[in-house]
């Protein structure tokens, strides 16, 4: 039995060893918020946080990260209350088709958790692994900047 800790919840799964974290999330646990658009480590839609760092779940073996802190998009909102990033994405028109959005938000969260006042350059770099075909990058940068400011306010 492998224990995965996802969004502060423990899942005990009979894994064989060769399952990627992406497949376990989507196919076994029904957490379809994490997407995949390429399976080639290029699109970033499969981004999750492991120990607060943005990583690609399509390149991660589920067994390799047993017991580590895994965060998916489903873990951000607290019941009815959206995470400031989620709210900022809505407020700034940073969501179009939404397929890249979960990965994008998590990559942004990894940045803001370390650095709540990033420059635009730092935001661009943190999101360089997440493709958005609808082309919403500029609004996404605005949303991340705003979310950072809101997070700093609630903390400080």
């Amino acid at each position: 039995m492998t224990t995965l800790i996802i969004n502060d919840k423990e899942y005990h799964l009979p894994l064989q060893g060769h399952e990627t974290l992406l497949e376990v999330l989507r196919d076994q646990l029904g957490l379809t918020g994490t997407k995949t658009a390429c399976q080639d480590a290029e699109c970033g839609s499969c981004t999750v946080l492991i120990n607060k760092k943005a990583v690609l779940s399509c390149l991660t073996l589920a067994c390799a990260v047993a017991g580590e802190e895994i965060t998916t998009i489903e873990g951000l909102a607290q019941g009815d209350q959206l995470h400031p990033l989620q709210q900022a994405f809505l407020d700034h028109g940073a969501v179009q088709c939404g397929f890249c959005t979960p990965g994008m938000i998590l990559a942004a969260k990894a940045l803001l958790d370390k650095n709540p006042k990033p420059t635009e350059e730092e935001i661009r770099q943190a999101l360089d692994g997440n493709l958005c075909r609808c082309g919403g990058y500029l609004k996404i940068f605005d949303a991340v900047k705003q979310a950072g400011e809101n997070l700093a306010k609630t903390k400080g």
């Binding site: 994490t34 998009i73 909102a77 709210q87 809505l90 969501v95 939404g98 959005t101 979960p102």
Partner: peptide, 10 residues
Amino acid sequence: RIDGRGLVTG
């Protein structure tokens, strides 16, 4: 977006 919440929460 009217459908935005579902998109940002996955």
